[in-house]
Structure formats: C-alpha cells, structure tokens
Amino acid sequence: MPQYSYSQSLKIMLIPYLIIGILWLPLTFMIEKYYDSILISQFLVIQITTAFLFLIGFYFNNTSIYDIYWKVAPMFFVPYWSKGSGNIILPILVYFYCIKQNYTYFRFWPGLSYEDYRILEIKQKSPSPLIYWSIVYLGFEVCPSIMVFFGHLPLYYVFIQQNPCNFAYNFSIIFTILSITIEFIADYQLFPYRSKLLKGDCDIGLWRYSRHPNYFGECMYWWGQYLCQLSFGFENAWTIIGAASIQALFSFYSIPDMENHLLKKRDTYANYKKKVVSSFFPWFRKEK
C-alpha cells in the first residue's frame, strides 16, 4: 500500500464524505420520486453511500475510510426525519454524539497507515481477495450501516407522534445525555494509553470499575433512543430490534473479541481482568 502523509490521508478520508454531504438530498429526492417514504429513501441512500465508500476504500486498499461513516450518516438522516416535527433536542443530541465519536476517532487516527486489527486478521486468514473484500463489505460496512439505521429508527416514530409521558420522555433524554457523557469520559481517560503516551492497562477513573466503560456508554446511547420512543407508548415497541441487535453485537462479539486481543497483546491484562471483574457494567473491584 502506498504511504500517504497525514494531510494526504485526511483529504482521501474526508473528500468522499464531502461528496456524500452534497449528494444526500439530491439522492433522497430522486428516490422519493419512486418510493414515497422517507424511511425507504434514507435506508437506500445509506446503502448507496456505503457502497460508494467501499469502492473508495477498495481503490486505496484501506478499509478505515469507512470507519467514521456510522458516526456521520445519522447527521444526515435524523434531521431529515425530524423536519416539521418541531423537535430540536433529539437531533442536537445525535449531532453531539456523532461529533464526540468522530473527535475521539481522529484524536488517535494516524492516517491511512491504520486499519482495525480485526480487518488485518481477516486479511491474513482470507484465502482470496474476493472473499476478503466480500467480508469487509457485507460484515464491516453493510451490517453496521443497517444497525445504525435501526438503532436510530425509534427517533422517526418520536418525530411523528405527540403527547408522550413527560416523565418517561424526560428520563430518556437525561439517560441519553448520561450515556454520551460516560462514553466521552471513558474515551478521554483511555486516550493516553491508546495513543501510547502511557503504557500498560488503563486502570483509572471509569476503567477501575469496568473493563469497557466506553462500550457501556455506547450501548446506553442506543437504549436511550428506544426509551425515548417508548415514552409514547408500546405501539412501536418492535423498534427494540435496533438497540437489542447492537447490544448483542457488543456482548457476543466486540467485547469477547477485544478481550482476546488484549490478552494476546499485553501480559498484564490477565491481572487487570482479575481486579476489574466486570467487562461491561461498572461494578466493584476485586483487589485480592
């Protein structure tokens, strides 16, 4: 793979997103000529732009170009869903969440020299480029784009409904704000270790009580979206599939896979794991 400077990498990363931002509404209006549904139009636009980013990543032989998309797409489709609703709190929270996620990512991103360790492992094990790129596209780009769509889907039904239970609605807003705050604090505390300014296991702040408090805050965010919709009643309770699928992803794949990766990467992690007994929920430590 050619070596790119950080400024070159940044251009290669961000120009496709600028193009997506310019084309989002024209694509939406074009699709809505054939499908009179903003849910269908936004789902299809997400998949079209996902395919576009995949092709860019394929051309540059680097999958990290897609990495920030699931933190960018909601900034387009959630405000579009909210038009005419008069609700500005939820789009602002979504923007705050997405900006926080992208800030955290670019804070450590070294440029196109970076790819997720899981991608690199798949590349090494794949018997052919066709299988490798198929797994990348379907498993690491299409699936996340679908999960993000369904994770935010409860907000669509919030925007088209009226008269929620005020206590439940306000609770869901506070819950969502708390989730973003927890994840932000966890990411901030982890940064010196992730950027290798400090060595060893992050055993400070929230990380003293959970081995993955950032994942805990992340999942809280998606449950906050669902709780918000639930404050209007149980008519659209089926939208739980978004938060539930993301929770399942973290519980049965992301956390176990990261645990195995860290055990291989650091000899000290096994001892840290004994002291911080909870891999998800903040809980009491076990010092001895």
Rank of each mutant, 00 (worst) to 15 (best):
M1F: 09
D116Q: 14
E32G: 07
Y193T: 03
K11W: 14
Y6T: 00
E32Y: 02
S134R: 06
I180W: 01
S210T: 10
W70H: 06
F284Y: 14
I65W: 06
K275G: 03
E121F: 00
K11Y: 11
L23R: 04
Y95C: 14
Y137W: 13
F29K: 07
E287I: 00
K264E: 09
T239S: 04
Y34K: 06
F171N: 01
F96L: 15
S245M: 08
K33P: 14
V45L: 05
A73T: 13
Q189S: 02
W223A: 01
A248D: 03
L249M: 10
N61R: 15
K196H: 15
I68D: 14
S134T: 09
A51T: 15
G224N: 04
S5T: 15
S134G: 08
V78E: 13
I19C: 07
P79Q: 04
N260H: 05
Y117R: 12
L44Q: 01
V142N: 08
D257G: 04
P2K: 07
T176A: 06
S254G: 10
I40N: 12
Q47W: 06
E287W: 00
W223I: 10
L138I: 13
V78P: 08
Y4P: 08
Q189R: 04
W223H: 11
W222T: 02
L153W: 07
I174D: 02
I122S: 02
F29M: 03
V136R: 00
K100Q: 13
P154H: 02
I182M: 01
S64P: 11
Y35V: 07
T268V: 01
